[in-house]
Design a binder for these strands. Structure first.
Length: 483
RNA sequence: GGCGGCGUACCCAAGCGGCUAAGGGAGAGGUCUGCAAAACCUUUAUUCGCCGGUUCGAAUCCGGCCGCCGCCUCCA
């Protein structure tokens, strides 16, 4: 497997610290508001990476944290007039609601910053003892000058960083780039006792502490959004390696952004769509495929049109499943030679290999999905050749099973066509129930039997106005939500 | 200003030295069908922002130019 490592800016062969095991830490979110689609991308990317390692037979430990104490949470608490921990609790629940809906599996360990305050204090003490940190008025800062490799991840020299510094410099810092490990709290702010007085941890320290506590001082993969490269991950490396004297994470994996009108989607720009908004109008699986149809490091331009197109693509899968299921029910038992048989078998045989090749190459989900859709086309082709007999039955059954099992690694293709259409009924706001549709179909069947085409067509047109398309197949009439 | 990335058909997107430049969407024509729908077939990039260079051979490597974006501040 090859993974692009931000540290070396190259694809590298993946070699785990411990044979057969992979330890991953992905930076989660600060729980102070609803998540937007950019958060979803990061979560989905690492969800897939984790699932793929598992598929490859690795024993995976996956950690994703929650930052549950921070200035933004404190501010939000003031705005909402509730205690800070209520804010954290509320948005942690909202986070789960959205991410669960998107089919993102819970991490093996989901640490919260406030549960590790003592460990952080211990680490900060150690850093002070080793001369990497200093105390000023109850604050503790990390001294970047004490760590010679500072800037190695973001590929910046200290001089460049100083020259470009746009931040107001805290005069108490020895170097403007020094960052807070511990912040003294003001009156009325949440605080924890510490050797330096009451305060709360700085942002970066939590990830170092929680990752090393659960994964060891050196672990395999550390990741998050590309905006975390500097300063967050740079600072994590500095404090962790200064503390242990050992390399921190071996592979740094960063996902690209979602953009709107070519600009990064962000809270501060206000150009974001919450996951909640999007799931009102789109099926979660559509969102998932949309986000996985572009390589994880490239930017994705958010577009409703693209989501619609993805919906149409996914509908192809479920239509094909429906078609195969219908076909199998009435397929002739008589075995006969089919010129397409060999081709179909070849497609099925090579599909897992092609899927793995794509995923082994820095998690190329876009290519992998391309292969899956190619197979869908081949299945339809095969079906058009009217195969029959036990061999065809076995081939078709295997084809669908294969799509489902490989799709499972991306957590797509897992539902029945009916579940898909029921979901579309909701997201496309179809104002007619499944029962009514079935009733109309029965009514139309009657008309068709009488060869009353006019009536049959008018019923069909009526349903179409509600966004329902009918298909008359040899196995009977089936309905679909028009996409 | 420093550092980094991107520019592939009408749209999205993979390909990163050599087989016909994946796949999806959209458009056009056809097959099938009571008519449709779905599906399939054909068709839409002799060409990969532009200009040079390296090479037997480049969308893929190198240099320059143009355009867009990100990080350097909280940010997935």
């Amino acid at each position: 497997m090859k993974i692009f490592n931000t540290m070396t800016r190259k694809k590298e062969e993946f070699v785990p610290v411990e044979d057969g095991k992979v330890k991953i830490y992905a930076c989660g979110v600060t729980v102070y508001d609803l998540c937007h689609i950019g958060h979803a991308r990061s979560a989905i990317v690492f969800d897939v990476i984790r699932r793929y390692f598992r598929y490859k037979g690795f024993d995976v430990t996956y950690i994703r944290n929650f930052t549950d104490i921070d200035d933004k949470i404190i501010n939000r608490a003031k705005e909402e007039g509730i205690p800070w921990h209520e804010v954290a609790k509320k948005y942690t629940e909202e986070y789960y609601r959205d991410m669960d809906a998107l089919g993102i599996e819970r991490a093996d360990i989901e640490p919260k910053a406030t549960e590790y305050i003592n460990d952080m204090i211990e680490m900060i003490k150690g850093l002070i003892d080793k001369g990497h940190a200093y105390v000023v008025d109850g604050d503790v800062f990390f001294s970047v000058d004490s760590f010679k490799d500072y800037g190695k991840l973001s590929k910046r020299s200290m001089d460049e960083l100083k020259a470009g510094a746009r931040v107001e410099v805290d005069k108490r810092k020895r170097n403007p780039l020094d960052f807070a490990l511990w912040k003294a709290s003001k009156e009325g702010e949440p605080s924890w006792p510490s050797p330096w007085g009451p305060g709360r941890p700085g942002w970066h320290i939590e990830c170092s502490v929680m990752s090393m506590k659960h994964l060891g001082e050196t672990f395999d993969i550390h990741g998050g959004g590309a905006d975390l490269i500097f300063p967050h991950h740079e600072n994590e490396i500095a404090q962790s390696e200064a503390y242990t004297g050992k390399p921190f994470a071996r592979y740094w994996v960063h996902n690209g952004f979602i953009t709107i009108a070519k600009e990064k989607m962000s809270k501060s720009l206000g150009n974001f769509f919450t996951i909640r908004d999007i799931l009102e109008r789109f099926d979660p699986e559509v969102v998932r495929i949309f986000l996985l149809s572009t390589h994880y490091r490239s930017p994705i331009e958010f577009s409703e049109d693209q989501l619609r197109e993805t919906e149409a693509a996914l509908d192809r899968f479920y239509s094909t499943v429906m078609r195969v299921e219908g076909y199998l029910q009435r397929m002739s038992k008589k075995q006969k030679d089919n010129p397409e048989q060999k081709r179909m078998e070849e497609v099925l045989e090579t599909l897992p290999r092609r899927f793995e090749e794509a995923m082994d190459d820095d998690f190329n989900t876009a290519l992998a999905i391309g292969h899956l859709f190619e197979a869908i086309k081949e299945i339809n082709r095969y079906l058009d050749a009217r195969p029959s007999g036990p061999k065809a039955q076995e081939t078709l059954t295997r084809a669908i099973e294969l799509l489902r099992s490989i799709g499972g690694v991306l957590n797509i293709f897992q539902r029945s066509p009916r579940q898909w259409h029921l979901s579309l009924l909701k997201t496309r706001k179809v104002d007619i129930t499944e029962e009514e549709i079935e009733r109309k179909i029965a009514e139309r069947q009657e008309a068709r039997k009488q060869k009353d085409w006019q009536k049959a067509d008018s019923i069909r047109d009526e349903l179409l106005k509600h966004g329902i398309v009918l298909e008359d197949t040899l196995q009977g009439t089936v309905w679909r939500v028009k996409v």
